[in-house]
């Protein structure tokens, strides 16, 4: 297990190099010159030359890339053109917001999706199976923005069960510590705030988690159906074990590898691409951070945003790969 983990970590290095090469070249793919983009079309030649020198843009590309990676290794993501703040510091609250939302969305998706898939496979062709798979089909086909708006209309406006937008009650903001608001409110020992924070998470989590939930449910069902036909499941039954042991110990573990793959991919997608949901629910996540940067042509922020999302994606894949090995002792690389 240790050797396997080390090998997988070593394999990260070329991936990370490739990633930085791509984000590095984004700035140089901008039509015209970065200095001109920053200073605007009316800039004088002299001002442009000064800026180019101060930014190191007149150095060869190789040297520029080396400096870029050196800065990254020291945790320096550059400076935002718009706010003039250090991106490394500015980006954290957005990452935390996205993490928190993704965590609860995936919690919802995995819990409902896996269980619906299991029951559907166990009671194949029953009314439950039929209904669950119908909902799964609707779930995958439904546009997120439509679902989000419907949720807001029914549960926020008509029923007033949950707040429609934001991460907390903006009239009564809290002193952030980790920027994970659920954790923060627990750290503040303020339990009414824990409830309000969780209430803020309900609608966006469901909106964001519905598509992964549907995909996970379908994947779990088909994988379980496959496994339930296998010889070793017959052996477990022949030993005299009950349905629960058969399904939740032997069948689920064997059926889980493809489900885990889907969970990993979907988590990555949610972390990177939740812009629609974040916008509708005014959720200050990484998606809306990068979206604003695009509007302002804030290239260092776009660059850093892409790098961070790609990095998270790579880490999730690493975790999934390590979990494969944990589940299936036969896997080796």
């Amino acid at each position: 297990m240790f050797a396997y983990t080390m090998r997988r970590l070593l394999m990260l290095i070329p991936v990370l190099i490739g990633m930085t090469l791509i984000t590095f070249s984004i700035v140089h793919l901008i039509p015209g010159n970065p200095a001109q983009v920053i200073l605007g079309e009316t800039a004088t030649a002299e001002a442009m030359q000064n800026l180019e020198e101060s930014m190191g843009l007149n150095e060869p590309y190789a040297v520029q890339y080396f400096i870029y990676v050196q800065d990254l290794l020291q945790g320096d993501l550059g400076t935002s053109l718009r706010s003039k703040a250090e991106i490394a510091k500015e980006i954290w609250p957005y990452i935390a917001a996205t993490f928190e939302l993704t965590f609860f969305a995936m919690l919802f998706a995995i819990f409902i999706g896996v269980n619906a898939g299991i029951i559907s496979a166990w009671k194949q062709n029953s009314w439950f199976d039929f209904l669950a798979m119908l909902f799964a089909l609707i779930g995958v086909s439904m546009p997120v923005f439509w679902l989000a708006l419907m949720e807001q209309w029914i549960f926020a406006q008509e029923l007033s069960w949950f707040p429609a937008t934001g991460r907390q009650d903006n009239r009564d903001p809290m002193e952030p510590i980790t920027y994970f608001f659920v954790i923060d409110s627990i750290l503040h020992m303020d339990f009414t705030r824990v409830i309000t924070t969780l209430k803020h998470l309900v609608l966006p989590s469901i909106a964001l988690g519905t598509i992964p939930m549907a995909i996970i449910a379908r994947m779990t069902r088909s994988s379980m159906l496959e496994v339930m036909k296998s010889d070793y499941i017959r052996t477990v039954k022949a030993k005299g074990s009950g349905q629960f042991l058969v399904i939740y110990k032997h069948a689920l573990k064997n059926a889980f590898i493809p489900v885990l793959t889907v969970i990993g991919l979907q988590t990555g997608v949610l972390l990177g691409g939740a812009i629609l949901t974040e916008t509708i629910f005014s959720w200050p996540g990484i998606g809306s951070y990068v979206y604003q940067a695009i509007n302002y042509r804030d290239y260092p922020v776009i660059q850093s945003g892409i790098l961070v999302v790609a990095f998270i994606f790579v880490i999730i894949n690493l975790v999934v790969d390590l979990m494969y090995k944990f589940i299936d002792p036969r896997i080796s690389y």
């Binding site: 296998s230 010889d231 070793y232 017959r234 052996t235 477990v236 022949a238 030993k239 005299g240 074990s241 032997h250 573990k253 064997n254 589940i327 299936d328 002792p329 036969r330």
Partner: peptide, 18 residues
């Protein structure tokens, strides 16, 4: 498995691999 037990044709696939 207690009073009547059974073994199968395919030993390669009859044990849970995990």
């Amino acid at each position: 498995g207690n009073e009547i037990s059974m073994i199968f044709q395919e030993p390669m696939t009859s044990l849970d691999p995990l």
